[in-house]
């Protein structure tokens, strides 16, 4: 396999990983205009829950797909509960406050959750078993792409499509869009804004938990800090693509992944992070709202 396609697949995997988390960031921002810094932590909690459940199930003799399904279900439900609670505790009381207050509250929530897991679990790295099945169809391509990476890329695409459909065509999506456009007006026409906010957070947390399981299976280790690290790159990707735009988040993440992969491959690994952030600065200079962001006219 030639050098270019190897780097291409590497960049695609990296980009999809960033996108999995960026989707949650951007969706919450698009609907309630809040940067949920605790999103990375929900991802981390999802991965921890999956690890705990998977370990218990494996010890009790279960194996393969049933472990994956059960661990995912528990992790998704548990993370959704976290997302719901975080919104109720940290953001809802600040709905009418100035925009800075919920931002600070979000950072506080993020720090709190990190330290809570640090104390309740361990400060050390834990090995994470690969819960995803080995796909035999990919055997001719060994050395280019593994099953785990393939599943991550496909899942990202599927989640992006589903999320777009949900927001465009369902009743809940319509309510979300109405809230995004004008919260007061939406309330006047009978949209339950509180429920919309809760739903947004629950969906965001479900995405984070799925991301947690997929990415932890790929990396093979977790600790309390992974959410923060994943969050930085995902947030960059969301801004790059235009925060609030769902296809934008995926596009931004892929651009970031490809830049890092090709930058390392063709220039030097010394500047891996520099490439990504130079690109971010350039894009924001020429297109301040990001690649696919809308330039909203000032509200009167």
């Amino acid at each position: 396999m030639d050098y270019f396609s190897e780097l291409f697949v590497g960049g695609l995997t990296r980009g999809s990983i960033y996108a999995l988390i960026a989707l949650g960031y951007t969706m919450v921002y698009g609907i309630i205009e809040l940067i949920n810094f605790a999103h990375g932590e929900i991802y981390m909690i999802g991965a921890f829950t999956a690890l705990i459940v998977a370990s218990v199930l494996t010890m009790s003799g279960m194996s393969g797909l049933s472990v994956l399904v059960l661990a995912s279900v528990v992790a998704v439900i548990y993370s959704a509960a976290y997302g719901f609670t975080v919104e109720k505790v940290a953001y809802k009381p600040l709905r009418q406050a100035s925009r800075l207050s919920p931002l600070i509250s979000a950072i506080g929530m993020s720090i709190f959750l990190q330290n809570y897991v640090l104390l309740a679990q361990t400060p050390d790295f834990l090995p994470f078993p690969n819960l995803l099945p080995e796909l035999t169809i990919l055997e001719p391509y060994t050395g280019l792409i593994g099953s785990t990476e393939f599943i991550i890329i496909v899942s990202t695409a599927v989640i992006m499509v589903l999320l777009t459909l949900l927001i465009r065509y369902t009743r809940m999506g319509k309510a979300m869009r109405a809230t995004a456009q004008d919260r007061n007006m939406a309330m006047l026409v009978g949209v339950n804004v509180n429920r919309v906010a809760s739903n947004t957070f629950i969906i965001g947390s479900v995405l984070a938990a799925i991301g947690g399981i997929l990415i932890a299976s790929h990396i093979g280790r977790i600790n309390f800090y992974i959410g923060f690290i994943a969050g930085i790159k995902a947030f960059t990707a969301a801004v790059l693509g235009g925060i609030g735009s769902i296809p934008g988040a995926v596009l931004g993440a892929l651009v970031l992944g490809f830049t890092e992969s090709f930058g390392t491959g063709y220039v030097s690994s010394d500047y891996e992070d520099a490439f990504a952030f130079i690109l971010l600065i350039l894009i924001l200079i020429f297109k301040p709202s990001g690649l696919l962001g809308h330039t909203t006219s000032q509200k009167v």
Partner: peptide, 20 residues
């Protein structure tokens, strides 16, 4: 001669380059 960051979670690009 390649390097990686202490917090990086994916080094495939470096390894692809080294393999080449």
């Amino acid at each position: 001669d390649e390097i990686y960051g202490p917090k990086d979670t994916d080094m495939t690009a470096q390894i692809v380059k080294i393999r080449g």
